[in-house]
Design a protein around this nucleic acid. Structure first.
Lengths: 117, 117
DNA sequence: GCCATACTGAACCCGATGGTTCACTATTCC
DNA sequence: GGAATAGTGAACCATCGGGTTCAGTATGGC
């Protein structure tokens, strides 16, 4: 049984709840960028965008490093595994029940067909 | 390429960002419950708990039905698939890069070992 | 050294969120 | 019919979150 840090999950899901931050993740998935680059792309003040990046970093979804006067933002981190693992268990559970319901429906239909003869 | 409803994802991730709501999901994963049952379990007013259930329902993570004067809350819905699908793509991307980095490290170490001879 | 660039922190604004209480409606049970 | 049960909606409160501006610091280029 794996143990999940509650605060990490909170941060990851909260970070992904914002469409701008999901956009940043997509953007960084295609390549590194500086705060300025992202601020331009997302038409936001440097300060505002920095807050988003900080949130993503705290959630373990992006990493950053200061190179000279620039901050390079890169895609990735443990946050994806954390959140995906939590979700996946419940997604499977739901799929299994859904499949079971499907089978039940089929059986009932087959039975109806038998009775109708 | 699948298209995701932005608002649905917003709702799903936002819903899962709250530990109480994740707790409700877990609880309902083990069986149905009424609003009162949940309010007792989570030590919260009926009204407060109802809001959480409404949020989960809007996110497609829980379904409910009013039976008599009771509201039965059940686990499941499309929200899991939506959120899991979005996350999974990026989780895989990160895993792939991580694996690639591992291979690179191994190669460098192998090269060092060669050089050392 | 000086100016421009790139970011950072503090303060602020305002709408959203998590919770409450109170008043009300709809069901069930005797 | 009347009392208890189960939920709902409105109003309210405090905090959080997404955004801004403004003032400051650190770095790079001439």
């Amino acid at each position: 049984m794996v143990h999940y840090s509650a605060t990490r999950l909170d941060a990851a899901f909260a970070a992904l709840a914002d469409p701008t931050r999901r956009g940043i993740v997509e953007r960084l998935g295609r390549g590194e960028a500086s705060i300025s680059d992202l601020a331009t792309d997302f038409r936001m003040s440097l300060t505002g965008l920095k807050k988003h990046v900080s949130a993503l970093e705290a959630a373990g979804l992006v990493t950053t490093a200061k190179i000279g006067r620039e901050r390079r933002c890169r895609f990735g981190g443990d946050g994806f595994a954390d959140a995906a693992a939590w979700l996946e268990g419940y997604r499977r559970l739901w799929d299994a029940r859904f499949a079971a319901l499907d089978r039940l429906t089929e059986e009932l239909q087959a039975k109806d067909a038998m009775d109708a003869r």
